[in-house]
Design a protein around this nucleic acid. Structure first.
Lengths: 222, 222
DNA sequence: TCCACTTTGAGAATGCGTGCACAAAGTCGA
DNA sequence: TCGACTTTGTGCACGCATTCTCAAAGTGGA
């Protein structure tokens, strides 16, 4: 019965499921009962063959000649992504970014609830941010266990990233979203995804430069 | 000799150059004169063969038996990534996230300078955030031109993302970093990179679920 | 000068992801 | 009931990325 067995789902597909999910939520809100792969592809910004192949990994949920039942597909994708359950999340590092993430509405929506904020700075501990009080990182172990936290968001300075990641893992966290601009490794059985703003800008810069260089005055580039 | 011609550099390689760059900066600060692909791989969290292949796309900058000259390689990668020049950046949407990004130190470091903040909300226009005052989005065109802004950071609500992206493109911006949780397209000749926090969490949730579901009875962890 | 050692650079094999193209499956109107 | 039409599900081919492997290039000590 679990969501577990089935075929192995390719990583690239997993990364697109949330796009389909979002498109389907929007479609469902408009009371549209079914959707074709073509239309779903358009909403998700990918191509139709890809949508069909991706969805076929979850099982044959479509009806030829008709399309996919919006509600049903939504349910299946939710289940696959684990959005039918509640995921308590902790944010570690309550600087600029951590604070913004703590106040960010986007998460709360689908089962992700920020239930703890940690910082190492004694000055910050006890302060309120939104509805939560900042707690000391020394209480990480206890709080993670008590509140069943499975996902940690890392928003500390680069120099502390690996250390804090280790502590999160030791406390039992198995999923980490890392905003720190540092290479940081976790043992097998723990997932880590990285978001690095400076890297994104550097990649943009690379292509901007290649395209013919940007600012007008500086004509010397080809 | 511009940075432009040479071989075509694969996308995957471009995405890793910033990692090498960071590793090299750190290495250079420690006065280490040369570095092997093995060591660089370790610092960047990838494998050595990949490092060598990636670097070979830039040209043959290594010395067999020795490794790569740190300073020289750093210079070459900087040039390739466009980090030797100044990139004026605008942030559009000064909500929680936009404000955090405006205060974020990480950018400033390598040539990316936030030089304008825009919002549609008249209440916000004129307020200071860090060293800048928020400007009206109606002045986008003028300000982008005046300050030579080539990169825009989109931190507006999903519903406005496409519209604001269009306006940025119309104003002459050719690179967009999009934080809005929405599908958003740009014409050819403009790059857009997406960062979607909710999607990252959903991907983590997927794998966490597959690993054995997380919270209640923690049966079989190593 | 020569030899043992290190390390790069690239050829080749493999695997993953994408997208085309089409048969199979199902709908709907007459 | 039948036939035209729609749309899915998947086999297949292609291209990109990764990784292994090893000859070539260069160093440094004797």
């Amino acid at each position: 019965m679990g969501a577990t067995p089935r075929r192995r789902i390719p990583e690239a597909t997993v990364a697109r499921l949330p796009l389909y999910y979002r498109a389907l939520v929007e479609t469902g809100e408009r009371q549209v009962p079914t959707i074709s792969s073509e239309r779903l592809a358009e909403l998700a910004g990918v191509n139709a063959a890809k949508v069909r192949k991706d969805l076929s990994y979850l099982g044959s949920y479509g009806t030829r000649g008709v399309g996919y039942d919006v509600e049903y597909l939504l349910h299946e994708i939710s289940r696959e992504l684990g959005l039918t359950r509640d995921w308590p999340v902790a944010i570690v590092g309550i600087g600029n970014l951590g604070r913004a993430l703590a106040n960010y509405r986007g998460f709360g929506a689908r089962g992700f609830r920020v239930v703890a904020l940690f910082d190492a700075d004694a000055e910050l501990v006890g302060r309120r941010v939104g509805e939560l009080a900042v707690e000391s990182i020394d209480d990480l172990d206890r709080v993670v266990a008590e509140r069943g936290i499975a996902i940690g968001i890392l928003a500390v300075p680069a120099a502390f990233a690996q250390d804090v990641a280790d502590r999160l893992v030791a406390a039992g966290v198995e999923s980490i979203l890392n905003f720190a601009p540092a290479v940081c490794t976790v043992p097998d059985g723990v997932s880590m995804r990285k978001v690095d703003l400076a890297i994104e800008l550097q990649i943009l810069s690379f292509y901007q430069l290649r395209r013919g260089a940007g600012t007008p005055q500086r004509a010397e580039l080809p």
